[in-house]
């Protein structure tokens, strides 16, 4: 396994990934390895449908999409966990995924950088295009995870110094130039709004930081890989309100450079940080639209019932 693989593996969550023999989990499609986008028609949708279901926000059309998901089905064994999902993410956009536990939102976010590849019973159909390229086609999964970073629910800094945590990924990719590494660490920590707090203790253990600082360190570690998209899976659920507020402010800053998808159980976090909100229920994408609309006048009664606390 080369160093690139190790770095991407770590940025993607630290689980072992046999990249070189990455299983193709898109079952049953004879053209799974071609780079042609597939048109998903099994649900009775008209072939060639090109526009995402969002007709309210209108911010991300199919041409401007950074990421474009079409007709995605995901199975765990025989269980259909995601049903015919159409989704798009524009450059510099923040999208919140909401829904009750078990609705498929974490599964979905993991589709976007192929984290589900590691689950043997998991298979998908449909397409996930990153800048027009099918991530389940010929794209190198290491390269994918460099471009699509991930931040997890619980801060997971490595047991090493603050500096080494941020430099780790690029070092693994072979970057040895100390000055460039130092610049990268500094700029990543600045972008993650952590620099002022740690600049005098870069050599101290990352584990000595507070929970909120550790989470921003993880964001800095992700940024250091120069991703295009950052996925965040409940990034503030383990943090206090002050630390949560700092992460939310940070998301507002980060969207100048990146696209962000955030899974959250906090309705008001979704309403504060995102431009569009996607509501999942029982594996279906029920509503996907402008956040202000979703939280003041949702189109679907199930969305209204969920965000108003009638169930969930």
């Amino acid at each position: 396994m080369n160093q690139d693989n190790i770095a991407a593996r770590i940025m993607g969550g630290g689980k072992p990934a046999e990249h070189t023999s990455q299983p193709d989990i898109r079952g049953g499609k004879p053209d799974a390895h071609t780079s042609q986008p597939e048109v998903y028609t099994s649900s009775g949708k008209p072939a060639g449908h090109a526009s995402p279901p969002d007709t309210r926000g209108g911010k991300a059309d199919a041409h401007a999409s950074k990421l474009d998901v079409r007709g995605l089905d995901l199975y765990y064994g025989d269980f259909l966990a995601l049903k015919n999902i159409d989704f798009s993410l524009a450059p510099h956009e923040v999208i919140a995924l909401i829904g009750p536990s078990g609705c498929g939102k974490s599964t979905f976010i993991r589709v976007l950088n192929r984290m589900n590849d590691l689950i043997p019973s998991c298979r998908i159909s449909g397409t996930v295009m990153l800048d027009g390229e099918d991530i389940y086609g010929s794209m190198d999964v290491t390269q994918l995870r460099s471009r699509v970073g991930m931040v997890f629910q619980k801060p997971n800094p490595f047991a090493m110094s603050v500096f080494d945590n941020v430099a780790y990924g690029k070092r693994m990719q072979g970057l040895r130039d100390k000055r460039r590494l130092a610049e990268l660490v500094e700029s990543s920590l600045i972008k993650a709004a952590l620099w002022d707090e740690v600049k005098d203790r870069l050599k101290k253990s990352a584990l000595s930081l507070s929970g909120g600082q550790q989470q921003r360190l993880c964001i800095a570690r992700s940024i250091a890989m120069e991703p295009e998209i950052i996925l965040m899976d409940e990034p503030t659920s383990a943090l206090d309100p002050i630390a949560t507020g700092r992460i939310e402010e940070l998301i507002g800053e980060l969207k100048k450079d990146y696209s962000i998808v955030i899974v959250t159980h906090a309705m008001h976090q979704a309403s504060r940080v995102s431009g569009r909100t996607a509501f999942f229920l029982l594996g279906e994408l029920i509503e996907f639209g402008d956040t202000r609309e979703v939280f003041t006048d949702p189109a679907d009664k199930r969305t209204e019932d969920y965000i108003s606390g009638r169930f969930g």
């Binding site: 309705m267 008001h268 309403s271 003041t296 006048d297 969305t303 209204e304 108003s308």
Partner: peptide, 9 residues
């Protein structure tokens, strides 16, 4: 209570 949607309206 932080109402949303119809409740907020």
């Amino acid at each position: 209570q932080q109402p949303v949607a119809r409740d907020l309206r």
